[in-house]
Amino acid sequence: MIIKTILAALVAGLIAGAFMTAAQELRVTPLILHAEEYEGEEPAAGQPITEQPATEQQHSHLKQQSAVDYVLAALSPITPAYAHAEGEHEEGGIMFGMSRFSGTLLANLVAGSGFGLLLAGVSLVIGYPITLRNGALWGACGWLAVHLLPALGLPPELPGFPAADLQDRQIWWVATILFSGAGLYLIVLRAEIVAKAAGLLLLIAPHLYGAPQPVDISSAVPAVLGAEFAVAALATTLAFWIVLGVLSGFINDRFLKSA
């Protein structure tokens, strides 16, 4: 039974990861490419930031991203599976010459499988199976815990945006996910008023403490572009989690119960 649950989670995660890649290519990746044009620029003091496209040579170089970077970014405990490495890479990447799209697809397949296993593991531990009826709820809770609630303190960031120390952000991000997951469990699955109150407290505790913030918030990237990216990134991850939850429930209903 456990083996079949794991296989079902992997299948659902791979499908959701492929879906995620298509969704990112439509909306998220173009915004990243646009923001990369501003890398290396300094905001002019006292002057509004205007768009200054990079040279053809710079644009060609910035389009090249290592598949390794994308895998590490997708697995990194920072809201940004969209984090950007500033290091230079040889054309075509450093992992079997994979393109940006291939690297993104690989990272999303790995991340999708991991999140699928995470949902399955949590459902087994708490004894609340994922079904087609509640799959969307499972997905929504996963999105809230892993993306939306941490994004209240550390929103998805574009290349060139200022950020606090990486280790500080990682610690806060992981702690927020753990607190959020426990809080959602108490609110959604426990009927006691005390449990729901404790769950609400767990949800807000990381934000009362506060996420680490950069000292200097100046950036050459227009703020409106960053806001557009944050919305697109969160919408994409929401679609991913809903697909993951519904697929996991469908596979469990169709194959596990009939076994």
Rank of each mutant, 00 (worst) to 15 (best):
M1A: 12
T5N: 13
A16C: 09
A16V: 13
A23P: 06
Q24V: 04
R27K: 10
T29D: 10
T29I: 14
P30C: 04
I32H: 09
E36N: 12
Y38F: 15
E42C: 03
A44K: 12
A44W: 00
T50A: 14
E51A: 13
Q52M: 06
Q57F: 00
V68R: 13
A73Q: 08
H84D: 14
E86P: 06
E86Q: 13
E88Y: 04
G92N: 10
F96A: 15
R100C: 02
S102C: 07
T104Q: 14
S113C: 15
A120L: 00
W138F: 15
W138Q: 11
G142W: 00
W143T: 03
V146G: 01
V146Q: 11
H147P: 04
L148Y: 06
P150N: 08
A151Q: 06
A151H: 04
P156G: 09
L158H: 07
L158Y: 04
P159V: 03
F161R: 13
P162W: 02
A163F: 02
D165C: 04
D165Y: 03
D168I: 02
R169T: 03
W173M: 03
A175T: 15
T176F: 03
F179Y: 12
F179K: 05
L184W: 08
Y185W: 11
E192F: 05
A198C: 09
L203C: 03
Y209A: 13
D216P: 01
S218V: 09
A220T: 04
V221E: 00
L234R: 11
T237D: 12
T237K: 09
F250E: 13
R254Y: 06
L256H: 05
